[in-house]
Design a protein around this nucleic acid. Sequence first.
DNA 1: TAATTTAGGTTGTATATACAACTCACATTG
DNA 2: CAATGTGAGTTGTATATACAACCTAAATTA
Lengths: 140, 140
Amino acid sequence: MKKETDILDSCDPRQCISMKMLKCNRIISQIFREHLKEFGITNSQLTVLFIASKREYLNQAMLSEMLYLEKSTISRNMKRLFDKEFISREEFPQLKITEKGKEFLRLVIPKWNSAMEEAKAKLKEEGLQSLDSLLYQLEN
Amino acid sequence: MKKETDILDSCDPRQCISMKMLKCNRIISQIFREHLKEFGITNSQLTVLFIASKREYLNQAMLSEMLYLEKSTISRNMKRLFDKEFISREEFPQLKITEKGKEFLRLVIPKWNSAMEEAKAKLKEEGLQSLDSLLYQLEN
DNA sequence: TAATTTAGGTTGTATATACAACTCACATTG
DNA sequence: CAATGTGAGTTGTATATACAACCTAAATTA
């Protein structure tokens, strides 16, 4: 009787790309969360705020495409930014950062910089290049 | 009157490491979600199942440390795996994959392989190396 | 003009995640 | 032995996320 190899034994889940990515993501997120927590803002919210501060015209569909997030996700994240009055939508569907939002960003950026420094120190030059390379491969 | 440079203008949020990582993560997660959805299992759950299939002894604290997840997160994720009867905990706190869990894994692995293939095709050799390099920098 | 399509969002429901506060069982120590 | 501490999990509460189903208004078309 020939014994078949169990697929469970021959499979090497340590190579799982999704798991590796999730782990990287959690380590980096943790650094930013730590630095940002005193301001009661999350990575995701800060990202949107940054984009709104730079873009001339912006709506939720654009954010969704830029960040690879489902439109419902964006909708709920925006709700929190509307509540904080960091973003307004007086001329629907256009999103605009408010003065309050800008002031908040000016306040937070120094801490965002320290989070960036900590992350850079951890990644080193090699890791930074790897991240850029990774994103480049995934987006192209 | 000297005009100070606005920190908002001098800041380049496109370089945000956290945002880049989140984007990479979402793109990869999407690939795996797509391939796995027919089985009603998520990346996170599959990862735990894989680990449980390989480890002699395992408890939630170990999972937490291995995956950089908060213990409460693990607790809730485990709940779903207990409910599906893929993992059991008869000798608390030891976690064991069940026969049902193993059978499920054997069923899913081919699809996991196709997700891996799609991800590899997207990352190419360069992206794969970048991901390994990234995780290495972050874990060491 | 009435019907249909489409762009843009929202809401229901589910999983994933974190932090803080808690429980519970067992070990250590006074 | 009682008090205290510690390891391991759980629960409350909040944000982040996805998918499916829905809504609304504007454009297109029959």
